[in-house]
Each structure stands twice: as C-alpha cells, then as structure tokens.
Design a protein around this nucleic acid. Sequence first.
DNA 1: ACAAATTTTTAGATTTGTCTAAATTTTAAT
DNA 2: ATTAAAATTTAGACAAATCTAAAAATTTGT
Lengths: 224, 224
Amino acid sequence: MEKLFFVTRSEENYIKTIFHLGGNSSALIATNAIAEQMETKPSSVTDMAKKLAEKGLVHYKKYQGISLTDIGIKTALSIIRKHRLWEVFLVKKLDFTWDEVHEVAEQLEHIKSEKLIDKIDELLDFPKFDPHGDPIPSKDGKFMERDKQLLSDVELNTEGVCVGVKDTSAAFLKFLDKNKIALGNTIKVLEKEDFDQSLHIEMEGKALHISHQIASNLYIKKND
Amino acid sequence: MEKLFFVTRSEENYIKTIFHLGGNSSALIATNAIAEQMETKPSSVTDMAKKLAEKGLVHYKKYQGISLTDIGIKTALSIIRKHRLWEVFLVKKLDFTWDEVHEVAEQLEHIKSEKLIDKIDELLDFPKFDPHGDPIPSKDGKFMERDKQLLSDVELNTEGVCVGVKDTSAAFLKFLDKNKIALGNTIKVLEKEDFDQSLHIEMEGKALHISHQIASNLYIKKND
DNA sequence: ACAAATTTTTAGATTTGTCTAAATTTTAAT
DNA sequence: ATTAAAATTTAGACAAATCTAAAAATTTGT
C-alpha cells in the first residue's frame, strides 16, 4: 500500500504539464520542455522533480528526464477530468463562451471534493467531451480518444464533422466564432492551394477559404 | 484612487475572520481573538496585521487591535457572498445536505472570477439567504439582516417560523435533520422548564422537547 | 500605585516554491 | 576523440506564511 501524500496546487500543475507533454507513456520528458511550457526556470523544475519523486508521483533520473508513475498518471487524469467537466459546466449551465472557460477552470480544477465533481458530472449528464472536443476521463481514468485528424492532413474531397481544436487560445477560439466555425459543423475539403497550403472548404453548405494555420488547428472526424 | 493589491488566499481568510468577529463596526478586534478563531498563533496574526495594513485592508495600531477599513469590509462581503452563494448552489443544484456544504464552500469562495459568481447568482435566481438562514450580500455589498430571535429568548406561546441556525457545525445540523427540524418549519413555544431551561415546543403540529443548548442555537422569526 | 498576570510584539527559525549564477553532465560537431 | 554548445543540476538567496521563545506593553488586583 503506497503512502498517501497531500498533493499541493503547484505539484498538481507540474503533474498536469508532464502528462500533457508525455501522455501516459513512459517516455522521459526533458526538464527544459517542462520549464518552457510552465513559463518557469529549469532549476525550479529540478527542485520539483525531486519532491514529486519523493512522493512517488514521478520517475526521475538525474540528467535523464521525468515521467509519471502509475499514481502520477491517475493524479493527472483526475485533474484533467475536473478541468474539463468544469469547462462543460461553465458553457452549458452558465453561458460562458468556449474562449472564456480555460482561466476559470484552471482554478476550479484544484478544488478537492470527490463528491462535488461527481455531482457536477451527473448534473451535466456525464459528458464525454469538453467544449474544445477533448475527451473527459471517467472516474476510473478511462477515456475515449476520438478518431480524428487535423483538417490540414486529410485528402481532397474528404467530408466530415468538426470535432475539436488543437489550439485552445482565446484568440483562435474567438476567430472561429467570428467566422461561424463551430464543433459539429459539417466540412468538405474542396481544394488545396499548393502555394500556401490554404484550403478551400465547404462548411455547413457555405464556401470558405482558410489558411494552413487554421486548418492545422482544427480536428475533423471523417464521415464513414 | 487606492492602489490595487492582489489579495492572497491566506489574507482573505484573515479578512473574513475579522469581519465575523467585528462586523462592519470600527471596534478593534484583539490579536488573541483572531488567533483563537483561526487556530493559529497570536504572533502570526501580528505578522498578517502588518501586511493587511500595508495593503490598506485593515486599521492596525500596535497593542490596540485590528479593524477593517472600508476596502476591507468590501473585500469581506465579497468573500462571504461567494461562500454563501456556493452553499446554496451545492444544496439546490447538487443535492448536498446542509451539513456538507461548509468545507467545500471554504474552497470555492476563493475562486477569482466576477463573472462566475454573478452567473451562479443568476442560476440560483438571486437567493437572499443561504442554507443556514444567513443573508447573502448583494454585488454592491448590501444585505438584509432578517428580523430574528434565538428560540431560547422568546416568550411563552410565541409562534413563528424557523429561519436560521447559530451553530453551523455538522454535528448540530445532523442532529436537526435526525429530529426533523428544518428551516421553514412552524414553531410554537408551549412551556419552559425552569430547572434546565429546556423547552416544550410544537413543531409542524408535533410536540417536541428540546434542551436549552438546542434552543439557543435556533433562530425564529415571530409571526406578525 | 505597583507588582503580577495577561496580551501582544519582536527576533529568529522553518517550509514551500521560486529565482540567479555557477558548476556539472550530456550531446553535438568537426 | 576532443572540444564546443546545450541542457541540467547545485548552491545560495528570497518572499510568503507560519512557528517558538523571549521581550515589551498593557491590564488587573489589591
């Protein structure tokens, strides 16, 4: 039986970042990569790595890198579950727009109450995806990775549905709103410009010309 | 124009405690009283008093005591507003019992987002009282103090409605649940035992015998 | 009013999370 | 293979929030 440690807010943020950079794989994540992602210094990451290793949340070998232990992964999934459920709550129940939810969810994800998040889950009727199309882990840490591709990667004439965004920045999301691009919209790729990789697409019946930068941040699920 | 400081979680907890001990009056609160209430040491209170004074949230005179400034009072009311609105949310929307809400609300009250709490307020249809009968300050810091008295203080044959509790501990609230005593219930005081101050009452039509300890923690509003 | 008791503050230490600057290790290049 | 560059760690410092123990101020009792 592993000893139970209290996990601080700062530790939770590190765990979350390590998960996002490395997934559930045992690949070693570089100190620098974590520091850059968190906008902190590599030396701070080293300090925290020792603390997390002490608590059994990460594997850490000096100069090699950091990866999550099984407990670390479980912890990360629990935080991500909370973050994404709160995002759904904010959008569905409180009329937040999808570009507004991240900052508040960053705070709410640290609230410690199993009952609270399970009740929120129930209130929302157990959603499987958050407002950006990212999957919500279940209580026991499982989640469905949706069959999706970047719009920039699919062949000409592919038809499908917009199911998610890669870039979740407020700037990008507001751009999508302004251009009436929303999850659930039908998409067909009509033409690809060789010169700048921009795409001519049909979205919900209307013709649209989008840059490569936009296409490489939109996920679509191809029609069967 | 007063300088705007970030108020930390710990500072918010001190502000809240000072408000609860001293209200909006300018009465000076003793270092010891605050320390006892917060289960901390007087020396820690002194340290924090200096910090809060620096930020313009309290008046502090060495050896004299501490009281909130106008900004401090505004800050306190904002925290209390958030705490009580979250309590209502937990009970009304997530089926928490009134003895379960305090601990979670203690965390939620520190979430920083004006839009969030205003939307929660709206979702709950702008409640005026929390699950324990305590008034919820409005956005601009006003709240109605209800016309209420301790059940132990009213005269014989008084009739009224149970509108609040003084002791909000889980133990007391669970006791009330077990004995089917709830806010909104009608109450009539039938007889007072001189020996131990216990009361014979009629609650929702049924006879009940309650100790002085219970009666001195229940608020009732007398019928007109 | 003065000594004793109480309250409050100060001084110095501790923990957490961070930083800078210097030292060390690893990686890459020729 | 040796050196230069890059990444990483260590050492020492700092701010926030707390504590203990000692000093100072206030209050109380006679």
